[in-house]
Design a protein around this nucleic acid. Structure first.
Lengths: 217, 217
DNA sequence: CGAATGTTTGAGGATGCTCAAGGGATGTGG
DNA sequence: CCACATCCCTTGAGCATCCTCAAACATTCG
């Protein structure tokens, strides 16, 4: 997560801006790693293909966030990144970023912070997956998305879920059918209101309580 | 994960070396973050305390690994780090490391790599937790530990599990009883042999197959 | 318009949790 | 050095959650 000012600063060293249409790839698993990518608008999902050939969703990415940080230690991207809707992405050559961050102490520090933050968020997500039941997982995902939209100055109470129920289930370790039933149930409990993929959080404290404390980022 | 040579290099800028006895803390959640920590010998576990007061194990740490990377983006450690046995730890003041890494390009790169690697490993673990059943989770943990011991030049086939069954279950999102039953079952299947906490992998290909592909780090 | 993809609902069943109990190891204080 | 408390591990029985299978409908897109 970067502030607007930081993104704008980075844009000055950006060599490539891309518009991705829904379903297009930012990169494929195995592609040579040479850049990290800042999302300006839209949304993406990351996923890998497991040994048995099934898709494994590893994350959703919103505007202001950085994609590709998990590839720095390798020479190739370990996952796919695919646009969930029309999206605008800025690619920042990593070798350039590295050398710049030597000259600009603030940049280096910021990079460390962004990466550290990602580690922490992954750990929180891990806890979510290992300790929570289906309702709590789904609630935690919604609260997490809400917090991320809020950080970008967007509405924390209503937003578009650009991924399918299948993606959500895959990500949370739940069957599609379970996700569908959750949506129905949480709506009956007046916690949320969903019309297709547009969600409104109608009881923020209630949903937060159900999610546990995953909303304190 | 750092190479021996890298650890030794870092030792030269280390200000504090600590010996922790079993049960002692390297740091508490909420302590001011000022250093990351390289483990020279022994083992630690990281955990947080959730809203309902229960312990949530977030990771196990072996020699050669770095603890505290998830705190860089904050001013305080987000988790506890507790010694599972007598352990030797080198603490590296982070501000010093930051300034040094400006002058030594290789160090900066290495830091980026270590952090990126941690992000990737967390993602793999996440997948493990969301997609695999109990047997597969346990097998994946054992294979993961095995690979980490191997990287340090230690035996990949037999080693000490220094954590309790409870810690393992907590980490993998399983009940203690389930872990206990898994140990029994995998032994009957001739995949492993456990005497108290000393484990021997008797069928590496079999265990690897059960774990899925989590052993390709 | 037809095909593919996504969503919802129902019924049955398996995996893993909870509750319960007993035995073993560890450690502390008298 | 022993007694007792605590923590750890194991095993059993019943049960809840969530998955699988199946089917129908909606939506998107070529």
């Amino acid at each position: 997560m970067l502030a607007d000012s930081e993104i704008e600063f980075l844009e000055n060293i950006v060599e490539r801006k891309k518009v991705l249409k829904k379903g297009e790839f930012l990169f494929h698993a195995g592609d040579e790693f040479d850049a990290i990518h800042a999302i300006r608008s839209g949304s993406l999902k990351s996923y890998t293909i497991s040994a048995d050939g099934t898709e494994q969703v590893t994350g959703f990415h919103l505007p202001g966030e950085i994609v590709g940080l998990n590839a720095i230690s390798t020479t190739a991207y370990p996952s796919f990144a695919k646009a969930l809707e029309t999206s605008l992405v800025c690619s920042i050559p990593f070798d350039k970023l590295e050398s710049l961050s030597r000259d600009i102490p603030g940049l280096q520090k910021q990079l460390f912070k962004v990466m550290s933050g990602e580690i922490r968020e992954e750990q929180e997500l891990m806890m979510l997956l290992s300790k929570k039941n289906a309702d709590e997982r789904f609630a935690a995902l919604i609260m997490n998305m809400s917090a991320r939209f809020k950080r970008r100055g967007l509405s924390e109470k209503e937003f578009q879920l650009t991924m399918t129920r299948g993606d959500i289930g895959n990500y949370l370790g739940l069957a599609v059918e379970t996700v569908s039933r959750l949506v129905t149930r949480l709506q009956k409990q007046q916690l949320i209101s969903i019309q297709d993929r547009y969600i409104e959080i109608t009881d923020m404290p209630g949903l937060s309580a159900l999610a546990g404390t995953s909303c304190h980022v």
